[in-house]
Design a protein around this nucleic acid. Structure first.
Lengths: 205, 205
DNA sequence: CCCACGAGAGAACCTCCGTTCTCTGGCGGA
DNA sequence: TCCGCCAGAGAACGGAGGTTCTCTCGTGGG
């Protein structure tokens, strides 16, 4: 069978951990080779260049992190509780020692507009997250769910940015409180005054 | 007189524009030398290394960008209007063609924890912005101005993050709407229903 | 007028890293 | 058993960029 397919998975796993932990420019191909336990030749057969690997890393991370968030919210019936659960998920993630902020914002800051494929992957991720939050917002009584979804996305992005620099999960709590205020301003029955949703472990690698 | 002092200013000006526009790693010392019209020798006399220059760049930017924000808000009497003006300022900035997000978030994403001085400068900037927003929040009727300040900061950081990737100022409008919802939830007289504060040009370089 | 000093311009140096090449050894087929 | 091929390991290559060195020229003092 095709060894390249399984090679890709090994390389992606190694690249995901290393790129996220140390940044893209700081990690050389040799370090990925060591972590993946693969000769350089097979690494380059799986991905023709570092740029291609970086793009694959971002698309891979986009896919599994959004799936993790979706899994976390899917079990919750009440639309507003479901939205608050996003921030519980965030809170758990930000508290983990390996948390280093949003991989996509970091990649953008590092590579800028220079790398076209990377910029596209980052934009696609942001759009997809916006869409996912829009879906959550659309289940509420919000008169403009598009706007609510965008506002939730801003809270999410800001949380990741601040929590990364300050190394703590307090921003997630504040973002949750802000989201709750947005939800309380919606027409319809308010949420019961105190609903502690338990902090879950994040499914991020 | 000491030529080093004026050299520092010229180098900082050049570095500020180049680092912000293209990222730190993408800009070499030779490019800064060209932009500052200074021989390399004098550049290195002004800043002993690139790391030192990067840290100075961040501290310089921290100082003048917070001053610009302060100047923009200082003229407004009503505490809640003053807070909304933060997002008008943001809106104007995000719309400029040279806008490339938060220089501090970008630097963090690029250099990570590796560069100690840089990380400290980024953290200091974030703390200072939080403090500035706390001051604005403390003038309102908010029962917990610390929390309100943090929530505003999250909105601000999220706006910068999204606006950078998507190249538009729409996030600033959404953040303004979210901020307005937070303010409307405060005890006391609500704001008049429509108060368009004009979009100002940003004082960012 | 002559010399020493310092400044400017650019090359040189050295390290790092993405990518490719070479050499070696083992394995499958005749 | 012998031969050819392919995979692995690491060196080699080429470019980039931070930092330093060298060479030359102008200037100011003796």
């Amino acid at each position: 069978m095709d060894t390249t397919t399984t090679d890709r998975a090994r390389v992606l796993e190694a690249a995901d951990a290393l790129f996220y932990a140390h940044g893209i420019q700081a990690v050389g191909m040799d370090r990925i080779r060591d972590a993946a336990r693969l000769p350089l030749k097979r690494l380059y057969r799986a991905f023709p260049s570092k740029a291609a690997l970086v793009e694959a890393y971002l698309r891979h991370r986009d896919s599994y992190s959004r799936a993790a968030l979706r899994e976390h919210t899917d079990g919750i019936a009440d639309p507003r509780e479901r939205i608050l659960a996003v921030f519980d998920w965030l809170h758990a993630w930000c508290g983990q020692p390996e948390f280093r902020g949003c991989a996509f914002a970091n990649a953008y800051g590092e590579l800028g507009e220079g790398a076209e494929g990377v910029h596209r992957a980052v934009r696609d991720h942001m759009d997809a997250v916006s869409e996912q939050l829009y879906d959550l917002a659309a289940a509420t009584t919000a008169p403009d769910p598009r706007a609510l979804g965008r506002q939730l996305h801003i809270l999410l992005a800001g949380t990741l940015s601040l929590a990364a620099v300050q190394r703590g999960s307090e921003p997630a709590l504040q973002a949750r409180a802000a989201a709750r205020a947005l939800l309380d301003a919606l027409p319809g029955d308010p949420l019961p005054p105190e609903h502690r949703t338990p902090a879950f472990r994040s499914a991020e690698a």
